[in-house]
Every structure is written in C-alpha cells, then in structure tokens.
Amino acid sequence: MADKVSSKPQKVNFGSDQDVRWCPGCGDYAILSQMKKVLPELGIPKEKIVFISGIGCNGRFPYYLSTYGFHTLHGRAPIVASGVKLANPELSVWIITGDGDSLSIGGNHLMHLIRRNMNVNVILINNQIYGLTKGQYSPTSPLGKVTKTTPYGSLDRPVNPLSLVLSAGATFVARTIDRDTKHMAQTFREAAAHNGCSFVEVFQNCNIFNDGAFQQLTDPKTKQEKLVYLQHGEPLVYGAEKDKGLRLNGFEAEHVDLANEQDRESLIVHDESQSSDVYSYMLSRMTENTELPTPVGVFRRISHDTYNENFLRQIDAVKQKKGKGNLKQLLISGDTWSVD
C-alpha cells in the first residue's frame, strides 16, 4: 500500500528538470510560474500532490512540475483524477485542462466531475483556439471567428465555461487572467483551500494562433474599464477612477455611473456564498454583453458534501454495520450444500 510516511512541507522547488517547450510568449509560462509559486505555500508535501492533464499545449504541464503527474488522454483528465482521488483521498489533485479538452471532447466528464463535487482543483486554460493542432476554432471561439477550419467565419455558438459549470452545480467557480499574476496566484490559493470541486477559468493568450483574444482585458489602457474584480462583501465597482458600478435591473446587471453617493447604494454587493446560483450565473453571462465589464475573481463558493468524502463515509458505515468482510464466509454464503 501507499507509504503513509510523509515529509514535512518545506520550501522546495516544484519545477522539474525538463525543458519547458511552449512557444516563447505563451501564456502558459505565467500559469506554470504562479503554480510553482503557490504550491510550496499550501503546506502539502510534494509527494501528496498529483497533476493530471489531458491533451493540448497545456497537457505538458505535469512534466514541468516535480510532483506526481499524469498526462492522460484528450478530455479525460477529470475522470482519471476522479479515480486517483477515490483510490487515495489524501492526495491534492489538480487537473490542468483547456477549452478544447474539457469543453469539447471531454465535456461529459467535466459536467459529471462538477456535479459530484469531487474534491479536486480544475484549472481550465481558455485561449479560445486549438493551439496544439495549429489554429482551428475551439468551442469557446466567438461566433464569426476566422480560423483555418472556418475561413468564412465560425457558425458555432460558443460555450460559456462558467455558465456551464454553474449549471452543473459547481461549488467553487472563479476566473483569472494570465497577465494578472498576483490575482492568478491568489485565485489558485483560494481554489486549493476549497473543500470540493474548484473550477478556475484562466484567460490565456495564445500569441501564435489567437493573439490578443483578451487584449481589452489585459491592456493597461482598457482593462480597468473592461474588468470588474469580484470581492466578497464589496460592491461591484470598476473603472480607472472607480466611478462605475453594477446594479440589478430585473434579473440582469446594468451599469451605473457613480456620479453621487446615492447611486452607490443601489450597487450589487458581491456575495459568493449565495445558496442559489442565479446571481453567479448572471455574472457568468456578462461576457456576452459588450456594454458590461468582464468579472474576474471568485464567482461562487459554497459548502457542499463531496463525493469522495461520502464515498469513504459509506464504506465506513458498511464496515461499521457488517464488520470487516471475511472472504471465507463470503464464499460459503448463498445456497451451499456439502458432498461427503
């Protein structure tokens, strides 16, 4: 069985000896770098951390870390991770995936991972393009997107990753951006701390096949007008001068110019712990309205039973009730007869 002896957590280098082979300028470098920064802070010994990836440029992620790692199949990281977690619940399990990997070929597994609330962390790196296969549109590419397979523009309505996972019952949903490293590191910390399935979407720039997809959100000239940072208990305010806010109009958010204090009172105060997912779902749809800023931060964080804990609990309950199974007795159970 697994060796239960573990070393004390220490400041260790979580990088491996392998050369990192992403394209120069790829957003994945920043994600890897922040992950290597955050992991030693978690207080989890290195041998108890497992990174599991699917296929895509980011699939190589585990090879660049010195933890246990498994580079699996296209779209299948969530289910391999589930098997790992059920086999050894003590492990800290991280899934590295992408928009094609988890929203297209592996959409089914993502949905079920989320609905089970398996206590693992999902980092979905969304660059709105197929990079490894060299530039075809992905399920998150916007309508009309011109790529090698859509020379006349994409006809596919894009999937909204956060809406999807919220509908599946996600208990921790967050978004961050590759260029905002501090925010990204903090988001990873929050994801790691959540007991349940943590889902983090990272907007990532593919500078080869989809350069500038998130430019408005990262360009210092525009980003403050285009991003709203979600902070629990704080009103939704944005803009370089913090002079804009969001309030509710029916079930939709609308933007308010904060000319006077009175307007401030009508603002939505961010509450990530609402038991209903209506609010977080509304936030997730804001990317589809160009008038509104794109939210980043923790959309939703609620406490819910995890599949892996209930799985163990049920086994323990059966053991309590029936005692540890005796193989000899089991074989002799049922309709038996003896021949002398």
Binding site: A2, V50, I52, R76, I79, V80, G83, V84, L86, A87
Partner: peptide, 15 residues
C-alpha cells in the same frame, strides 16, 4: 470511457 479512465487513475494511485 470514464469507467476505464477512473480505473486507470485508481491504478496510478495504488488501487
């Protein structure tokens, strides 16, 4: 697919 995937994950982790 998930069934064999989870089984492989379990085998990687010691079941």
């Amino acid at each position: 697919i998930a069934a064999i995937g989870a089984a492989i994950g379990a085998s990687f982790a010691g079941n």
